[in-house]
Design a protein around this nucleic acid. Sequence first.
DNA 1: TGTTTTCACTTGATTAAGCAAGTGATAGTG
DNA 2: CACTATCACTTGCTTAATCAAGTGAAAACA
Lengths: 147, 147
Amino acid sequence: MRKHTLGSLTWIRMMRFTNQSNQLSNEFLKRFDLTTAQFDVLIQIKTYAPLTQSQLAEKVTVTQGGMSRMLARLEKEGLIERKQNWKTKTISLTAKGEQMIDAATPSQLHFQSSFFEEVLTEEEMKSLYTLMSKIEKHSREKKLPPA
Amino acid sequence: MRKHTLGSLTWIRMMRFTNQSNQLSNEFLKRFDLTTAQFDVLIQIKTYAPLTQSQLAEKVTVTQGGMSRMLARLEKEGLIERKQNWKTKTISLTAKGEQMIDAATPSQLHFQSSFFEEVLTEEEMKSLYTLMSKIEKHSREKKLPPA
DNA sequence: TGTTTTCACTTGATTAAGCAAGTGATAGTG
DNA sequence: CACTATCACTTGCTTAATCAAGTGAAAACA
């Protein structure tokens, strides 16, 4: 039984890598009292605010329910604000949230990059980015094959 | 505020991709009554059995506690067996488990591959695999930077 | 031989995510 | 104008993972 394909091997490696690096990233962000997921949504808010919960959920690949709870937590900690606005809720960072994300961003981006920079050449990193962009875009449009 | 680096952009893309494709994969595997995580450990057992829980946990980047529960579930469903052996537990597939994984493997590997094959050339896939191998290996050895 | 260490695994408590049903306000229809 | 549909968000339930404390059996040591 030797039926692994190049694609499936790549898939496994990628899963392992993201799992592992996500765990390390969570540990790393403890010093800023954040999780990787929280950092991710805060960055999105900072970049795209004002935006609605659904838009946010879609951006970070999470269900609406998950986003609802996650934002409730962030709101309780005073990092974001939600204003009922027409029939949607508009989300924005509080001063505290802004401060938090500004403090964490440089180190976190550097940390994320280090996973690649420490082993790849500039050339390789560019090509990896191009490949990932293609693949990620494709996965968003992908449908399940029929049973 | 434009401090995103190539590395951090790549990181995000990869996280989104694995998240998304993991969800699709779970949905796909429903037709075999498996989750992606379960498929993963069954394959590992099939390939490397006999092995201990700790070895397995390490291979799939999960804590020992997580592995303990996961195997308990698989055992309850009759897919694997655990034998107390000296002071470790030796894990192996049951006939049912073997049958299950053999049935699921071809489609699942094909499905996994399709994320790449549908958008990349043979050339690109090879280079992606090489890059991922380097990165994944590196991440396993990576330590947190000091605060 | 009796006591302590170590090792592999389990388990209780907590956290977070998904799904699907529920809520409440606005829009559209007869 | 009442009534239904729709939309954005919330919430109850379930699943699964982490961490850390617990268990029990073999090893090491005095």
